[in-house]
């Protein structure tokens, strides 16, 4: 149970970074942390305590494997989700550079030409 609470703590840390911080780079770091939290939750849901890696070698009996091996599907899905987070972060970094070029600042309070 304690790991889930830690995941929630991590998630809210990242969310705090996204919502409360004004610097774009800190927002990007917050986005990274939130992404890791959701990936970690996904991994934990498929995890078995004291399990083994889901690789079936010839010397492992099949019953033992079924009982002990962790679920490989969440790990495959999380890999996809990591790629998506990478795309987000790479795009936001490029955007931050361009925003600095136009506005001369990383402060979200000063990047405020659109309103209404």
């Amino acid at each position: 149970m304690i790991v889930y609470i830690l995941v929630a703590l991590m998630f809210f840390t990242g969310l705090y970074g996204i919502i409360a911080k004004k610097n774009i780079i800190k927002i990007i770091v917050g986005i990274n942390i939130v992404g890791y939290a959701s990936n970690l939750l996904f991994i934990l849901l498929g995890y078995k305590w004291e399990g083994i890696a889901p690789i079936l070698t010839e010397d492992i009996p099949i019953n033992y494997f079924v009982e002990k091996a962790v679920d490989p599907l969440p790990q495959a899905l999380v890999l996809t989700s990591i790629v998506i987070d990478l795309a987000f972060v790479a795009f936001l970094a490029a955007l931050a550079i361009r925003l600095f070029e136009r506005y001369g600042t990383f402060d979200m309070d000063k990047i405020r030409r659109l309103k209404g």
Partner: peptide, 15 residues
């Protein structure tokens, strides 16, 4: 400048 700002808002909200 405005397009970049709009895209920034959109990206963070979408995330």
């Amino acid at each position: 400048a405005e397009e970049l700002e709009a895209s920034m808002k959109y990206t963070v909200m979408s995330f």
